[in-house]
Computed example of a mutant assay.
Amino acid sequence: MEQVAMEKALSKSDATNNRMELPMESLRNFPIPDGQNYFEFVAMDTVDRPWEFKVSTRNEGKYKKPWMSGQWGSYAHEKGLKKGDRVKLIMQVEGNGVRSYRITAERNLAMGIWIPVEDFAS
């Protein structure tokens, strides 16, 4: 079954730093093993290039706000992402529980019309 694991509009720091803050409710879609504070995975982009990401939470305290790092900075730079662009992680869960991920990034052209950022690079 396919579902949106995470969706957000980028802040300026998301687009320019080596990590992106994630909405708290998306954390359930990244199964962090017991005793760890991170989950590593590969997501394929719209041109079938694999990107290695890592979802992490703080080790201490109640505030577990997650963020994504790994190749995030390289992905954001290569795609030319900027504040206001929308990023989605789509998760496919197989019958055996194995998860696979796809990542997409879109820019608002006008009046709610979103197009893939790759279309801007052409």
Results as ranks from 00 to 15, higher is better:
Met1Val: 13
Val4Ser: 09
Val4Trp: 01
Met6Leu: 15
Glu7Cys: 13
Glu7Thr: 14
Glu7Tyr: 11
Lys8Met: 15
Ala9Tyr: 14
Ala9His: 14
Leu10Thr: 10
Ser11His: 12
Ser11Thr: 15
Lys12Tyr: 07
Asp14Pro: 01
Asp14Asn: 10
Ala15His: 00
Arg19Asp: 07
Met20Glu: 05
Glu21His: 04
Leu22Trp: 04
Pro23Val: 09
Glu25Gly: 03
Ser26Pro: 12
Ser26Leu: 05
Leu27Ser: 05
Leu27Asp: 04
Arg28Glu: 14
Asn29His: 15
Asn29Arg: 10
Asn29Phe: 15
Phe30Thr: 09
Pro31Asn: 04
Ile32Leu: 10
Asp34Arg: 09
Gly35Asp: 02
Gly35Cys: 04
Gln36Thr: 09
Tyr38Asn: 13
Phe39Ala: 09
Phe39Thr: 06
Phe39Tyr: 15
Glu40Tyr: 06
Phe41Tyr: 09
Val42Gly: 00
Ala43Thr: 06
Ala43Asn: 03
Ala43Met: 07
Met44Leu: 13
Asp45Pro: 07
Thr46Gly: 05
Arg49Leu: 10
Arg49Gly: 00
Arg49Tyr: 07
Pro50Thr: 06
Pro50Tyr: 06
Pro50Glu: 04
Pro50Lys: 08
Pro50His: 08
Pro50Leu: 05
Glu52Tyr: 11
Glu52Asn: 15
Glu52Ala: 15
Phe53Tyr: 07
Val55Pro: 02
Ser56Glu: 14
Thr57Trp: 02
Thr57Ile: 15
Arg58Tyr: 00
Arg58Ile: 01
Arg58Glu: 08
Asn59Ile: 12
Glu60Phe: 02
Glu60Met: 04
Gly61Arg: 08
Gly61Phe: 08
Gly61Leu: 05
Lys62Asp: 00
Tyr63Pro: 00
Lys64Val: 01
Lys64Gly: 00
Lys64Tyr: 01
Lys65Ala: 12
Pro66Asp: 14
Trp67Cys: 06
Trp67Val: 11
Ser69Arg: 01
Ser69Val: 03
Ser69Phe: 00
Trp72Gln: 01
Tyr75Phe: 15
Ala76Asp: 08
Glu78Trp: 07
Glu78Cys: 07
Glu78Gly: 03
Lys79Thr: 06
Lys79Cys: 11
Leu81Ile: 06
Leu81Asp: 04
Leu81His: 04
Lys82Leu: 01
Lys82Tyr: 02
Gly84Val: 07
Gly84Lys: 05
Arg86Glu: 12
Val87Gln: 04
Val87Asn: 04
Lys88Trp: 12
Ile90Glu: 05
Ile90Ala: 02
Gln92Ala: 12
Gln92Tyr: 06
Asn96Asp: 15
Gly97Gln: 14
Val98Asn: 11
Val98Trp: 08
Arg99Ala: 13
Arg99Gly: 05
Arg99Trp: 03
Ser100Pro: 02
Tyr101Ser: 11
Tyr101Arg: 09
Arg102His: 11
Arg102Asp: 10
Ile103Trp: 00
Ile103Ala: 04
Thr104Leu: 12
Thr104Trp: 00
Glu106Thr: 14
Arg107Pro: 00
Arg107Asp: 02
Leu109Ile: 11
Leu109Ala: 12
Leu109Gly: 00
Ala110Phe: 03
Ala110Gly: 03
Met111His: 05
Gly112Ser: 12
Ile113Asn: 04
Ile113Gln: 05
Ile113Ala: 07
Ile115Tyr: 09
Pro116Ser: 06
Pro116Leu: 04
Val117Trp: 05
Glu118Ala: 13
Glu118Asp: 11
Asp119Cys: 10
Asp119Phe: 13
Asp119Thr: 13
Asp119Leu: 14
Asp119Val: 09
Phe120Thr: 14
Phe120Asp: 12
Phe120Met: 15
Ala121Cys: 06
Ala121Tyr: 02
